[in-house]
Design a binder for these strands. Structure first.
Lengths: 219, 219, 219, 219
DNA sequence: AATGAATGAGCCTTCATTCAT
DNA sequence: GATGAATGAAGGCTCATTCAT
């Protein structure tokens, strides 16, 4: 019944525009007018389709994260009983792609980073839902790598070491420091892969060192 | 020529209030009224003393950073020819204290983190002036640890690994994940020290692994 | 030429919904969306069927009033030459039922009251058409009760005394003051009848007093 | 220190403008812009001085009512033990002046009437505080006039009969029906006095009739 | 005949800044 | 030197209405 193509189009256009602007500018810096201008629609359109700026933000966020998780699942397609080293690599690899990826696929990471340092009231719930599982997964892998003698603090520290190497990439807003890439431009997929390789190797060595330390102290 | 004591007081009170609120809420979430209410002065005071919200922000930022650097110098008081391992520890230790420290001394770190993920136009210049030297210092230490065969990319990657483990702490806004500290509260100086210990050890092992890899590839 | 049954249905549903909402919330507090939600139709329906919110309001008003007048005619079915006392009672009785009556029949009264204190431009015409005859009828009855010596002011005052006792009930929005009815709830038909009884008796005594006063002054 | 005359002036101008517009148009129909235009100030002034439209409304309301009560106290300056007939007259007289009075003194009544038929959420509390005492006073007088045998319903009915004759005048928004005053214009103080006279006499007769009825039924 | 989509005008409020003392 | 008052430029949202099917 009177399904108008442009109805869906406008909604999607707004969603697209919003995810771009939110990712780039953050919640507070983005105005509804910005989004609508970019989507080529009227200011009232956001409210019509989503109810409020807040609600739009939540939807954009959820969409972006789900899409990114689909494109780069944290298990990298590995079986649950794969070696912990491979699991760690898969985790790091997918996280980096989500955070640094170009286009839509990078929005999730960028929004996430913003939320971490500047949480919008609107989104705490979503945030928790999405970040906790990731942390759990990391934790499990770390546990396997540290062995049975590790205590909570040691696990927690290693968890932070690994995750922070990935998350902090979001700071750079897609730009790597000079020296790593000529001109400090945006990272190519190949560079992201190399970075994942590095972080994995770096972290495995770090974790191994912690493990040895634990075992020495226990004997 | 009596120096207007309370003039200076007001200025200082605003500076103090501003650094607290900016650190906690970020630039855009902070209103001039917030600051002035907290400083016990009136809304016009900010503009009167500093010209604009922007200018106040820049000053707050510079002050906070300089104060933090004085309190926790990145060289930790070590002589320039100290062993690279000690230098790395000093670097990490001071960075963590600047970022996680309680009270005024933590403001610098928190403002820094915010700026990284949400740069205010007002501050790009200051930002560069302040961050680059730190990066240079880190780079030099990494270079010494990696040996003469390391190329720019390898150095850059390790530099990021180390710095990001520190910087990302700012995300947490002073709260560590559960398991590391009971209740996820604010970190004590002791905990910060332990964390510095961990990051240093973790990173040295990571760097060492990278170094071995380099040498293997070169033979 | 099948008559679009659901077309009429929609129109009627809107009319019903509108009369309820208008009576309860008043013209300005009612949104077209409110009405359409309640009618189970879409926002465009009001404009489609009635042209505008204003036009719908006018129609609702007229309908409600005519329906109420049919259900409770001001003459109460009395012959024109019935005793003035009975006519007064019939008038009061029907007015109270129109104003306080439950369901559709009360809408007319409630809308009327609202219009009196907050006239919408849209309706002045209708309002006059509908109120004037009532006033005329009241006036005639009062005249008979006051006798031939009453002047316009005396008639007008008594007219107001009687009508206002009825009309002001609309203020209460269907709730009577505590003491009159337990819990201050909505009036039952029996209570309305009792109230009509009271107002009639009260007013007849009042009018009689005015009449005596007139006659004393004239002698 | 730096008391600016115009500060107070603006606040007062807004208060004045607001009480006029609110009384004339009601809460919902009045825009902040209307008020400020009338007060010759900026739209932001309302928020600056009063915090919100709601808060302004509450203040206007309270002011208007208090001022009106001061100008026309419900006891009319009578001693508490004055004859009930005189008390009733004083009550009616003052109520009518408050409701029909010209200029500022009439605003209270007009706002009151609006609130009765179209309550703003903002004001329920104030409303109760202000109306209940009046009702109590009326009730006491009625009780004295009805004698000891009256029950709650009889008292309540009479209370309504008296109060409604006064309150409903607010409907007219200052205009009396044709016949009472040439041209249906605004009531003069003299006319208001005459009306008070009428309502008192009318009501005393009504109450007396109710009383006789009570006593007949009790024997 | 009917409707989901879209719009623009308008409203209340916030806020950095300026004014006048 | 300092401040209470005042402002204008947005910003988010509501709503009656119009558009396109």
């Amino acid at each position: 019944m009177a399904i108008r193509k442009d109805g869906i189009d406008t909604r999607d256009k707004i969603l697209k525009a919003a995810s771009e602007v939110f990712a780039k500018e953050g919640y507070r810096n983005t105005t509804v007018a910005d989004i609508c201008r970019r989507a080529g629609s009227n200011v009232a359109a956001v409210n019509y389709h989503f109810g409020s700026k807040d609600a739009l933000y939540v939807i954009v966020w959820r969409n972006a994260f789900e899409e990114a998780l689909r494109a780069y699942p944290p298990d990298g397609g590995l079986p649950p009983d794969a070696p912990a080293e491979q699991c760690l690599h898969a985790l790091v690899h997918s996280a980096l792609h989500r955070i640094l990826g170009a286009g839509r696929l990078g929005h999730a990471g960028r929004i996430l980073i913003r939320e971490m340092s500047d949480p919008s009231e609107a989104i705490r719930g979503v945030f928790r839902d999405v970040v906790r599982p990731l942390r759990e997964r990391t934790r499990k892998i770390i546990k396997r790598l540290l062995g049975p003698n590790a205590n909570d603090r040691e696990i927690g520290f290693c968890e932070m070491s690994v995750l922070h190497q990935c998350l902090a990439m979001g700071f750079r807003r897609g730009k790597l420091p000079p020296g790593v890439i000529k001109g400090g431009g945006k990272p190519t997929p190949e560079l992201i892969d190399a970075l994942a390789e590095h972080i994995t190797k770096f972290s495995l060595a770090g974790i191994q060192a912690v493990r040895e330390n634990i075992n020495n102290n226990h004997t």
